[in-house]
């Protein structure tokens, strides 16, 4: 029996990956650049934008984290991790040269290949929102392959605004609009005031040409999507990234269910019309 082929068939096998870079994004958020120790794993690993890995720390456990780096450069994997729980707090103490584990990639990502030629409307809310950062970078690196790009981002307070430099950099791309808003601003805030859905009024959207990517609190999707639909964007052109507890990544452990879906396997990115009836249902 070929031991190597056997291990590839076991979806639970974890592959060691060295931290080759650690970038501080905010006080409790870091981006880790990882490189597989095993050469074959490095060669074989392929992923799509919006997919995630189970990131493992020896003796501590695994946590589901989206891949934010470019799928055309799969030898290096970037994971932006916020220290919020037992495992992510332990990971926060690691340095370049330390080793994490990777199992993946899992899940359904953003429909970025299908969206070529379309206008991209990207709506995000809250802290971080790493899954959509990867998508924005993907689109802007292939800027000529897409129509207009509109990025709408809402935060509660100005302190919640991460990636300020990135927003500024994105704004400089041609035919790219970036609108920021805060609903609890202070005197330093020079952008819009209000919740992110209010920004819809301020931008021109060409419904039949547009694809919407959304990432953030479910309430934002629940309130925001109907406004977009009223403006003529079909529910089938709206994609949302959803969040549930994921422990296995392969649709078996049961934690990430939302209605009939396992978000680790059927998501985390879901076309809105498929999940509309489940969003906002208590306890689903």
């Amino acid at each position: 029996m070929d031991a190597e082929a056997d291990s590839m068939a076991n979806p639970y096998v974890i592959y060691p990956a060295t931290i080759v870079g650690k970038i501080r994004e905010a006080e409790d958020i870091n981006t880790y650049r990882l490189r597989f120790v095993d050469e074959q794993a490095r060669r074989q690993f392929r992923f799509k934008a919006g997919q995630f890995n189970m990131v493992y720390l020896f003796g501590v456990g695994e946590v589901a984290i989206s891949i934010v780096s470019d799928p055309d450069e799969p030898a290096l994997l970037d994971h932006t991790i916020r220290a919020v729980g037992r495992i992510t707090k332990a990971i926060a103490d690691l340095r370049t040269g330390d080793v994490l584990g990777i199992r993946g990639p899992f899940g359904q990502g953003w429909p970025l290949e299908e969206a070529r030629g379309r206008n991209m409307v990207i709506v995000t809310g809250g802290l971080g929102c790493a899954p959509v950062v990867g998508a924005i970078e993907y689109i802007l690196r292939r800027r000529t392959q897409y129509g207009s790009v509109t990025i709408l981002h809402g935060v509660k307070t100005p302190q919640d605004l991460l990636y300020r430099e990135r927003f500024d950099a994105w704004r400089r791309f041609p035919d790219t609009e970036v609108l920021l808003t805060s609903d609890q601003p202070d005197k330093s805030w020079s952008y819009h005031i209000g919740v992110v859905t209010e920004l819809f009024e301020l931008v021109s959207i060409d419904p039949p040409k547009s694809i919407v990517l959304m990432c953030g609190p479910e309430i934002m999707m629940r309130l925001g999507v109907p406004i977009l639909i009223r403006r003529g964007i079909p529910a089938t052109a709206i994609y949302v990234s959803l969040e549930r507890h994921m422990e296995c990544g392969i649709g078996l452990c049961g934690h990430c269910q939302m209605g009939p879906y396992f978000l680790c396997k059927d998501g985390p990115v879901m076309r809105y019309d498929r999940v509309a009836q489940w969003l906002g249902r208590t306890g689903v």
Partner: peptide, 26 residues
């Protein structure tokens, strides 16, 4: 019912660790 959870049980010297799945419940 198939829900399960992952558990990590390292040895005291932290040189070995077992990655285990256990029945879980909703």
């Amino acid at each position: 019912c198939f829900c399960h959870a992952a558990e990590e049980t390292p040895d005291l010297d932290h040189q070995q660790t077992a990655h285990v799945r256990l029945w879980d419940s909703c």
